[in-house]
Amino acid sequence: MKKYFFKRLFYTIVTLLIVSVILFVLTHCTGADPAKLVLGIQATPEAVEDLREKMGLNDSLIVQYFRWLGDILHGDLGTSYMKNKTVTELLGESFMPTFNIAIYAEIISMCIGIPLGVLAAKYKGKSASVAISSVALLGMSIPGFLLALFMMMAFCVKLQWFPVAGYTPAMEGFLEHIRSMTLPAIALGFPQAALITRTTNNAMLEVMNTEYIKTAKAKGASEGAILFKHALRNALIPIITVCLQSFAVFFGGAVIIEQIFNIPGIGTLVFSSISSRDYYVIQGAVLVIALIYVVANILMDILYGIVDPRIRITGKSK
């Protein structure tokens, strides 16, 4: 078990390092000058040069990269040019809102997707299954932001059930918090729910054709037990994969939804920092998102092992 853990840790670090290099090169090669952006369009060349020196932008890329890397190892992710705050502070502030949306979106997409997928498999070929598949296709085809705008029109402006925008942290009133998170979570979660429905459906159909399902029926098991105990658990591997990947996607991809609903999360942070070429913030935020993906993958592996004993790392020896 230890060996596995260290091996995983090693690969995680290597992955993050590679990501950091690519990230660094990409952000620094956009051709724009952050110093000019900070000072604005009335800047004199002397002022800009001065700031570039201060920012260390005149050193070679390699020097700048290792300086950044060195700082990270000391826990310093750098400072934002635009906002005069440390990247760590900014990430800390924006992490929670995005994390909240991602969790709620995940819950929504799983609670809709998995049961619907199971039902679609159960009623395969019947009207119910067709209906579910149509809705799933629609869900996957609608871009999240479009859904967000529709919902805003319907539920915020016309019906006034939800606030148009803004984020209330859980601390400040749980009900308000849920109200402000509902629509963004649905906008994010619904398209993914569709994906989960289809994945669950396909996985279940595959499983339903296996021999052991026949055995289960031959034992006298009820339909419900066959579906939800015997079949679902075997279908879980692709379902887990798509659910955890969804979570990582929510985390990294919530930018537009956050913009529309004015949620001060990581997506908004990345967006604004890219517009203003705020290098350290971009790098720090993207690195965090990469980390989430990596963690999601590790979690996937662990869950696979729990769900399917054939994939366990520490198996009983044969």
Partner: peptide, 22 residues
């Protein structure tokens, strides 16, 4: 259902695929 597995039982050809792997 109360007959299956109780009054009549069945065994299949390939035990590996006939037993639930999880």
């Amino acid at each position: 259902r109360s007959v299956r597995g109780n009054d009549i039982a069945m065994i299949f050809q390939d035990a590996l695929s006939s037993l639930n792997p999880v």
